[in-house]
């Protein structure tokens, strides 16, 4: 379980994340939603110890993220941020292999290689595995990075806006894949996501943030309601039920 207690991040006098206390359940796919500047990505970065917090603490399975050695944590939790830019010339396979670094320190064992092959296959990157990253399209590169993160084989996987750079077809298959990773592989997947309907359809749990605070949390059925969404985003919504899915419109 990821336990976040009283976490704040301030720049000067301005709080970006303001005393957040939150327990993220084990298993399933949790989405963090909210308007721009709500502090979602900042919160995610602090959970993954990429950014120091101004106050509060985060524990993952009881391990304090700021005190636990980096390599111990790296075997439990991984994160993929937006805008991954690599200057080094690496092939897809090279990149995915880095996912095994926390386990093998760069010396790949047979088991590591097996994981690498599996991750490449899982993201359907077989054909591209020998290509250099700078020869790929934005969407293909995004998939390569996801493969690396999955190859790290951690219980907790965090994604910051994983659908950026992806067209509709690839966005849908990415979300399916992440949901599958949660259901089939038993991982705890946490996303920061912009598109409320992707969150509605694929999430097991939704957390809504606004101005650095948690405004509400619950199952999609509890959150995807016109009145709740209006408080979160500050604009009127309509919610329709299509089949078994709840779809929000706001146009």
């Amino acid at each position: 379980m990821i336990e976040i207690s009283n976490v704040s991040k301030t720049y000067g006098a301005k709080p970006v994340v303001d005393g957040v206390t939150l327990n993220l359940p084990v298993g399933g796919l949790t989405s963090i939603v909210g308007p721009n500047g709500a502090g979602k990505s900042t919160l995610l970065s602090m959970i993954a110890r990429l950014m120091p917090m101004s106050a509060g603490s985060v524990t993952v399975d009881g391990l304090d993220v700021t005190k636990t050695p980096g390599d111990v944590l790296a075997r439990r939790l991984s994160i993929l941020r937006q805008d991954n830019h690599v200057t080094a010339r690496l092939t897809v396979r090279d990149l995915v292999s880095f996912g095994r670094y926390p386990h093998s320190r760069g010396r790949l064992t047979k088991e590591d290689l097996h994981h690498v092959d599996e991750a490449i296959a899982y993201l359907n990157l077989g054909e591209l595995s020998g290509r250099f990253l700078d020869e790929l399209s934005g969407g293909q590169r995004q998939r390569a990075f996801v493969a690396m993160v999955l190859c790290q084989n951690t219980d907790y996987v965090l994604f910051d806006e994983p659908l950026n750079n992806l067209d509709m077809k690839h966005a849908v298959s990415m979300m399916r894949l992440l949901a599958r990773a949660a259901s089939d592989l038993g991982k705890t997947v946490v996303l920061v996501i912009h598109d409320i309907n992707f969150a509605a359809v694929y999430s097991d749990y939704i957390v809504a943030m606004q101005s650095g605070r948690i405004v509400c949390q619950g199952t999609p059925d509890e959150i995807i309601r016109a009145d709740v969404l209006e408080t979160i985003f500050g604009t009127p919504f309509e919610v329709h039920t299509i089949g078994s899915r709840r779809i929000a419109t706001f146009y």
Binding site: A48, R49, L50, P69, G70, D71, V72, L73, A74, R75, S78, I79, L80, R81, N84, H85, V86, T87, A88, L90, L95, F98, G99, Y101, P102, V149, Q152
Partner: peptide
């Protein structure tokens, strides 16, 4: 060479 964030995620004591 993957960058600071990726390195931390992969457990390097950056």
């Amino acid at each position: 060479s993957l960058g600071r964030e990726a390195a931390i995620t992969l457990g390097v004591d950056y």
